[in-house]
Design a protein around this nucleic acid. Structure first.
Lengths: 207, 207
DNA sequence: GTCTATAAGAAGATAGAC
DNA sequence: GTCTATCTTCTTATAGAC
């Protein structure tokens, strides 16, 4: 991997643990295996490194998001997929989202960095809310509206359904960001949550 | 108010916005209306100020928590209170908790400070998880178990019920910490969530 | 592109007068 | 208890050799 790219990787790694202000240019250089002044051949300042991380992660997110809304019409394809899969499909989708958010190395580190820096910069606050609240909620709301219209789920407020489905995943994700060792304790709870959610909103009366 | 106390107040205010590392001793002094060296007559170091905030907020939390578990037996009294109040009682309780967490000046600032500093210090991570996850979830789980036993709510996993009831409040609180101006947009959603939650778990079939 | 040496400027903390 | 002056250390960034 190029030195330029390795600088971004190591900087993100350090920023996600200690925050921008507590990481010194010399720390990044050491992690890369060079001396601090050499960094300035690749980036013109510490802030420039931070901005490069931001640009790269924003692009990466937009690529992922574009893949989900394949046809451009929110969640329609997915709703079709899950229309007949029901409970197990919902479990698979929820656990998949949770595991991706929690375990993807870059996604996790970038989220932790945003968590630390969110109150210092309105742009970072917007980014965090978009990626971890607004986008997932609107996507899932569209999906649940579809599943209700298809007769699979009860016809309740789809925004509330999305909130109730997603926020447990979000909250447990923030806990696991702080305490990775507690993940095993929460995995079963998430699955139970999704099955209980499915049972409550399912139109079938065989509960 | 004593200068010693005002230093803590202004320091918490600044730490909650910019984080420990980005607040300089001179900033705290200026906010208080004195010069930096004068601070050292009250606290022996910047870290000492941070530790004093931590001690005070921990004590304050423990006092609040003790008031809730009045009889020492988790949530029992509250379950009795809500046993006949049902949906409106649940709304009142949820909104009350949300509004207190979100609007109490010290609680909010301390939470934001912990949010920023959580990954730098395991003790702060533990504190955040205790105050905003473990304690609320175990309290509410006990309450829902009681309400199920009393025949008010369905007999489902009370841990999952607590997760589904509380995590929307938690997630929206974190959003409003970043974007206070969006609070009005989320208040109705929270109320709808609680009413929908109540409808789903209520034993009455009059829906 | 990487290094050593170093400039330039913070920022925490102390000394000592008032 | 508060101030001015100052010390010391740390940190970003540049200069210039290799």
């Amino acid at each position: 991997m190029s030195t330029k790219k390795r600088i971004l990787d190591e900087a993100l790694n350090l920023f996600s643990k200690k925050g921008y202000a507590n990481v010194f240019v010399a720390d990044i250089a050491e992690a890369v295996g060079i001396k601090a002044p050499s960094l300035y051949k690749h980036y013109k300042s510490k802030q420039d490194i931070f901005n490069a991380i931001l640009d790269e992660m924003k692009q990466s997110y937009d690529r992922q998001a574009a893949m989900l809304d394949m046809n451009g019409n929110n969640a329609e394809a997915d709703a079709m997929v899950f229309a007949d899969v029901s409970e197990d499909g919902l479990v698979k989708m929820g656990m998949g989202l949770f595991m991706y958010f929690l375990h993807d190395e870059y996604v996790q580190k970038f989220r932790k960095m945003l968590t630390i820096e969110q109150f210092a910069d309105p742009e970072l606050a917007e980014l965090f809310t978009k990626q971890y609240s607004d986008d997932p909620l609107s996507y899932q709301s569209a999906m649940f509206a579809m599943l209700s219209a298809n007769g699979v789920l009860k016809e309740e407020n789809p925004d509330v359904m999305a909130l109730q489905f997603y926020s447990p995943l979000f909250m447990i994700m923030t806990i696991c960001d702080r305490h990775p060792e507690r993940e095993a304790e929460f995995i079963p709870l998430i699955e139970q949550h999704i099955r209980q959610f499915s049972g409550l909103y399912s139109k079938e009366k065989d509960k």
